[in-house]
Design a protein around this nucleic acid. Sequence first.
DNA 1: TATTTTTTTTAGGTTTGCCTAAATTTAAAT
DNA 2: ATTTAAATTTAGGCAAACCTAAAAAAAATA
Lengths: 223, 223
Amino acid sequence: MKYSASKENYIKAVFHLQQEQENVTTNALAEALQTKPASVTDMLKKLKTQKLLQYEKYRGVKLTAEGRKVAVQIIRKHRLWEFFLVEKLQFGWEEVHEIAEELEHISSKKLVDRLDAFLDFPQNDPHGDPIPDINGKMPVLQQSAVSDMPVNSAGSVSGIGDQSAEMLELLKHKNIQIGTRLEVKRKFEADGSIEIKTRGQQPVNISEHVAKNLLIVYVNKKK
Amino acid sequence: MKYSASKENYIKAVFHLQQEQENVTTNALAEALQTKPASVTDMLKKLKTQKLLQYEKYRGVKLTAEGRKVAVQIIRKHRLWEFFLVEKLQFGWEEVHEIAEELEHISSKKLVDRLDAFLDFPQNDPHGDPIPDINGKMPVLQQSAVSDMPVNSAGSVSGIGDQSAEMLELLKHKNIQIGTRLEVKRKFEADGSIEIKTRGQQPVNISEHVAKNLLIVYVNKKK
DNA sequence: TATTTTTTTTAGGTTTGCCTAAATTTAAAT
DNA sequence: ATTTAAATTTAGGCAAACCTAAAAAAAATA
């Protein structure tokens, strides 16, 4: 089955919003898709008749199993293209999202799978998000936000919450990327900012916003 | 300026049809785009107001300089993607056209130019057609059809006229590809078929249709 | 609980790109 | 030079995906 780019975007948005809460509201979708609630209602009706989601008016939506399958395939494409852009075409991690938003709607299944093989089956995209495999399986790893790390614990950056170009720009400037090892040195109650240290570098201070959106997996410190 | 995929397809079609004849007719466009003449008329009016082509009702169309520029950029994208698909993703030359029809509408200029560099600035796509460079320049080489070659002359396959998947399938089966050296051995008046010989192989007979659509550049025979 | 506010839906439009059927223009043939 | 045929355009419609404004339902608050 093939769906329009617009429909695919709705499905993807529902999928992402469902990570936050089971039931997705019309307003949340309108916000995510930069469109009006009335337009969302229109589209939800269509997607419902196509059995991609469950929708009862005023009750919000959930994806069906089929909808989820479609969503995962789109996400697979998006993330593989992002990986391609960064690894092969030397793009910066803050500029690939926009281009991948277009590339993810290219329909050829064979293309995606060949691309996957060409890239040597990457596990994560440039922002650390997992790439679903050919069967739609994607590993969920145990991530915490830096804001939740105890003082003196160490972690390896594994993902970014707020992936806006601005945020990625800032992290790039602070020399933080996926895989960067960091250690929490101090936490300031006053403004929620945190002092972290990365290998070899002087300690730097990150704002509460950054701390909440910088995801890590714990690692055992080694001197 | 950004144009819809549909508009880009019209512009591209006009460009290609103009290689045959200066002035492109509504019917020819409808045929090429697999749509109805009435729809073509609709679109021509829109493209005219955007100054992409010259159009006087009942008089046919020609691209403007701007239209030509747009067409060439689309063709550049199409051919670069085709090259990518064959060279990097191991696709067969008969299956890449369809996928490139989608990829050519991805808008990022930077993407195309990076892809070009990644591919090491290829001169021709998998079917032998020239790839416009970053400035839109594309070399026109002196091609002849095998049907026009004198007996005993030799050439190197440089392009294909009819690029239908069926034709490409057939050529693949006959082991003919871009760069293949061939020599005309005999021409049969009866049906226009021609006997050719490629290096090492036994002579084979190709139909008039194939002979007319197999393009070559002449080479000096060397033993 | 009644009322106000917020959320969501309905109703009625718009644009893009397509369609069919009918009218018009151009080209071909008698 | 008519008449016939072919090509093209106009007129009126349709579906997708959006919009605004108004109505209805749900949630929040007095």
